[in-house]
Design a binder for these strands. Sequence first.
DNA 1: GTCTATATCCGGATAGAC
DNA 2: GTCTATCCGGATATAGAC
Lengths: 195, 195
Amino acid sequence: MARKTGSHADITGPAIKASALRLFARSGYAAVSMREIAGDVGVRAGALYLYTPDKQTLLFDLLREHMEHLLASWTAAKSGATPLERLETFVHFHVDYHFDRSDEVFLSYMELRNLSPDNFGRIEVMRRRYEAELEAILCDGDASGAFHLPDLRVTTRAMIAMLNGVLTWYREDGHLSRDSIRKMHWQMARGMVQA
Amino acid sequence: MARKTGSHADITGPAIKASALRLFARSGYAAVSMREIAGDVGVRAGALYLYTPDKQTLLFDLLREHMEHLLASWTAAKSGATPLERLETFVHFHVDYHFDRSDEVFLSYMELRNLSPDNFGRIEVMRRRYEAELEAILCDGDASGAFHLPDLRVTTRAMIAMLNGVLTWYREDGHLSRDSIRKMHWQMARGMVQA
DNA sequence: GTCTATATCCGGATAGAC
DNA sequence: GTCTATCCGGATATAGAC
């Protein structure tokens, strides 16, 4: 935590994002001040403005980078021949991602309201693109007779909501293993589509 | 909106709660000022303090009254002989309640973090009591062999999360009727428990 | 690259007039 | 019961020294 003068851009920049992510996730964007973020990083508030033009952009960048990473990770992970296999891959991927990046995911659906209209629109496009990935799987499964869905869009949203639920209660130190939680959610997801 | 002097306690009191509820739900507790609430009601900020000791208590009272009403409504509505019937009653009740009181429900799970520790504890007790109602139904169904659950608590939470999903996308003017949404969620819930 | 100092504004809450 | 006026703290963001 040496605060000597000199160049620390490569350290301070990421540190600001990490602190902001953690604090926003814990207390909410509106409740966290720039001073608090700076204090967590170990600099003064004014120094933050070397790395972000303002607080709003700081939030937006966190959400944008999260969504980009989510989409890229899914593109790399997607696999399976049948709709059932593809759905299983999606469920496992989604739950795992929530385990590994819970702060990012939590932020991305709690703080949408604090984005400016323009920024909200940009994030929303990416969120829909992710949703469309699941929707495509369900659509194919419904068409092939593997699934039996009451409504494509409603089922898509309900399944995302169900899977997101782990965010609100999962703790690392709980008595359930990650693998068992993954398996349970897969079983419930399969039930939801009547596979 | 006549602002004559005189006694308006019976009007202003509820009006403040209604405005606060709507504004908190729309923009978030931390982002809404007392002046903004007062402006929405049609009074000055100072007048709010005739009805609430502070902003925190205003939020707490909204959540407490919501939880009390939710629990009372469910107590009045619960019925059914078999676990399957009871579960259907619960799902229909829960979805209907979300339709009718979306602001209250939304607030109750978005603003928990902005409660003081004491107030949070009080709300959490009521939230758990509601969750326990569903858990009891699932427990009985699992014991009787009507349901097949991977884990009682995980299924309870996942089902609540799934049902809460309607909050994030349902709009009155959508193309889906309330009844069709209710039926679809019942079908998915039934699938989740393998009934 | 960071700090100190500050401009500017807005927040919650209170006192006293009407 | 409400308003006006105000206290006081804290917010974002900027300017200039080091």
